[in-house]
Amino acid sequence: MSLSVEFGLSLPNFHLEIKFDAPAGITAISGPSGAGKTTLINVLAGLVTPDHGHIEAHGRVLFSSHSQVNLKPEQRHVGYIFQDARLFPHLTVMQNLKCGRWFRHLPSDPEAIEKIVTLLGIEHLTTRRPTQLSGGEKQRVAIGRALLSNPDVILADEPLSSLDPERKTDILPYFEMLRDQMHLPIVYVSHDADEVTRLATTHLQLKQGRIQSS
């Protein structure tokens, strides 16, 4: 279970030349804001196309300029956890959790749902709508939604930055749990040093468009 990433991308205001491997566990990528962290994640998710490179997850090629492979976001099997939870407002919490499997035409998996819902402590929220949740609850549902879509890789873009400090300490353990129990490569982007120190299996820094280990 690993993700290997190598790509180059020129944008008007910066240039990224990225190369790293993410084994199972949390690969934390930190760097100042505006360094291109979100762009990096979006490239992995297939929402931004790099100029050249090769991205592979579990031996499955997601992008390769050499062999002209560029899988669409929906074909990449990545679970993307965003800065803001981005739950679908017209669906209930339960429908949000299930939608990854609907979208992929997979049969419903009540056991997996039950397990994740319990792990994340959101059993009592399943019939609510996103507007009736607090920020921390929303983010937990978003984590569950990403996990239940059966991803090969988890991408998290500053998932705690929109929460107040108390909520952050509430959610951090869930990421530790993901790291220790899910055996998935998790690319975790953050500019918060404490968060990174606590979570990272591997810590990388994005500086001047390049990855440096620290």
């Binding site: 990449r76 679970g79 981005r86 609907w102 992929r104 990403a146």
Partner: peptide
């Protein structure tokens, strides 16, 4: 961004539109 989110969760463009 909600549409992008749905794509990342595996939704085809038609599913994004309809759902």
């Amino acid at each position: 961004r909600l549409e992008d989110t749905a794509r990342s969760l595996g939704a085809s463009p038609w599913a994004v539109f309809g759902m």
